[in-house]
């Protein structure tokens, strides 16, 4: 295997991991606050289509990514209103949000089908980003670096800042947090908004960077992988990064193995690998004791209503 191919594989893994990492970082913060939002896929699609539309309209990628985050927040606020204000069931509402996102993105996207925009280019000058070897470190767009930096920032926020501690307190024991005077609903709404912004950004990474176009269901189920990844990482941002790279690696291995001529490996077997990995990890996680380190926030998915 030549160096070129190894470098290309590493780059494909890091790029493929980026949108999943962005979306799952958002969802991790949401779940840490005690809310389970299964609508990641729907929010990603809204972000993808609004980001693409804004870029088509203005010609600016920055406007596209900002519009995508705004669309993600707007979609997330529907969820926040239903589950936090009206105390609706979070699982049902999240699933509805995904179905809603699929439909509404398809509707908004009608005029954009068959069009394309210039893709997000690597951050650094071509001397570095196109260098045959150095590109493995310097050849990415700003969001690949940004997603890694955000992972570190989120880890720091959750473990080493006072707001992070409050957020976790709300997720672990909402009534205690409420008793000592924290606005549980407002904190959770802020977390859900952050999750929406990140999902919107992840969606726009598809429509503006990976495959610069709009087509119905563009994200093809990556939102669900992002959700699984949060559990996989046992709610720790650092493990989220490793998990996203692992998923990227398994997916890329499948394609590269076929391209290299590993025809003895059945395509069905390779296609099964990411799911097999998920089943194994979920099994391992379920073997842990409740309340042990790395288990779910205690109030995850439970509605909070002030009596």
């Amino acid at each position: 295997m030549s160096t070129t191919i190894v470098i290309s594989i590493i780059m494909t893994i890091l790029i493929a991991a980026t949108p999943i990492l962005l979306a799952s970082l958002g969802e991790l913060v949401v779940e840490k606050s005690g809310v389970l939002n299964l609508g990641v896929e729907g929010m990603m699609l809204c972000g993808a289509v609004c980001g693409f539309g804004a870029t088509v309209a203005t010609g600016s990628l920055l406007a596209g990514f900002l519009a995508a985050m705004a669309a993600g927040v707007a979609t997330a606020m529907i969820f926040a209103f239903l589950t936090l204000t009206l105390s609706a069931n979070q699982v049902a509402t999240g699933l509805a949000l995904t179905i809603f996102g699929v439909g509404v993105s398809s509707l908004i996207g009608k005029p954009f089908v068959g069009r394309t925009v210039g893709r997000l280019e690597p951050l650094l000058p071509a001397a570095l980003s196109d260098h045959p070897v150095l590109r493995v470190v310097f050849g990415y767009d700003i969001l690949v670096y940004g997603a890694i930096a955000l992972t570190a920032a989120t880890a720091w926020f959750l473990t080493s800042t006072r707001p992070g501690l409050i957020l976790r307190a709300v997720g672990e024991s909402d009534s205690s947090a409420h008793a000592i005077g924290y606005p549980v609903i407002a904190i959770r709404a802020a977390a859900v908004a952050f999750g929406g912004a990140m999902a919107g950004l992840a969606g726009a990474y598809f429509s503006l960077a990976l495959t610069p176009m709009w087509a119905d269901r563009l994200t093809a189920g990556r939102g669900w992988i992002a959700l699984a990844l949060v559990v996989f990482a046992s709610w720790k941002p650092g493990r989220l990064l490793l998990g996203a790279w692992l998923f990227g690696a398994v997916a890329t291995f499948e394609l590269q193995a076929k391209a290299m001529g590993a025809t003895w490996l059945a395509p069905e077997f390779l296609a099964m690998l990411p799911y097999l990995a998920t089943v194994v990890v979920l099994t391992l996680i379920s073997m842990r004791r409740a309340g042990a380190e790395g288990s779910a926030p205690a109030c995850l998915g439970k509605p909070f209503a002030t009596a």
Binding site: T4, I5, S8, I9, T12, A16, P19, F206, L210, T211, M213, A215, R217, L218, T219, A220, G221, R222, A251, T252, L255, Q256, K258, A259, M260, G261, P267, E268, L270, A271
Partner: peptide, 25 residues
């Protein structure tokens, strides 16, 4: 002709990665 089975009719990101893997080869 090198074939990659994407095992889907529609997954833009995966289809793009498959094409890149083939170009690498």
């Amino acid at each position: 002709t090198k074939v990659i089975w994407a095992s889907t009719w529609y997954d833009p990101a995966k289809e793009a990665d498959a094409a890149k893997a083939l170009i690498d080869q």
